[in-house]
Amino acid sequence: MVSSVKAVKGAVVFDLASQPLRDLNQFLHGDLQGIKGVTVENPDGAHSIAVGMNAAVQVDINGHAGYYAAGMNQHASVVVHGNAGPGCAENMMSGRVEVKGFASGGAGASAHGGLLVIQGDAGLRCGISLKGGNIVVGGDVGSFSAFMAQAGTMVICGDAGDGLGDSLYEAVLYVRGEVKSLGADARFEPMGDTDIATVKQLLADAGLSHKASEFKRIASAKTLYHWNADSKQTY
């Protein structure tokens, strides 16, 4: 099956309407030397499309993806030309994942590196347990986003729901719109020059044209870093 796909000159096309997901992912885990791009047709919300990529290849998913699109991505550039289900680009290490539409819950969860761009809105817990990746959301993010985010950066061009940045460690969040509420230990901080530069760069990487100066910085107040009886901790 794979050889017949390769025969299509220039672009490799997988049609999930007629080919199993297993074949696609097995192909993507193989030797991709000389292959520039892979197109996935008729994804129809299939789960785990292009997971475990480990090569600098472009994958275009022409339609909606289910859970874990581009999960654990390394090096690849994956574009979902539609919406993405929960856990899109979860635990990404490097590379770039872009969702042209909306992303469901847990987008970019525990990503250690790379860039996740969501042009539309993101659901609950976007960037939960973020460990070093960058996330740019063109629209709004749902509640409990960046929960326990440890490192990395989130740029939210729209509004954020409840509990943004609860129990943050060293990750930094930038929000352009309204924040319904901050989570425990998250606080607004003044924007410095490095913040402006960071936001500017990430917006440029995401192809968005907002002004960096319109964003507010949110980071950890670090009162939960150490247990002590007097900090009115509720856990």
Binding site: L21, N25, S48, Y68, G71, G87, G106, A109, I128
Partner: peptide, 26 residues
Amino acid sequence: ACRHPDWTGPDDLAIKIKELREITDW
């Protein structure tokens, strides 16, 4: 954390297990 960041409940777990199987080629 006490809950996984990218799935909740047994139906999601089934999908998560499949993802790990896909990543490791079963």
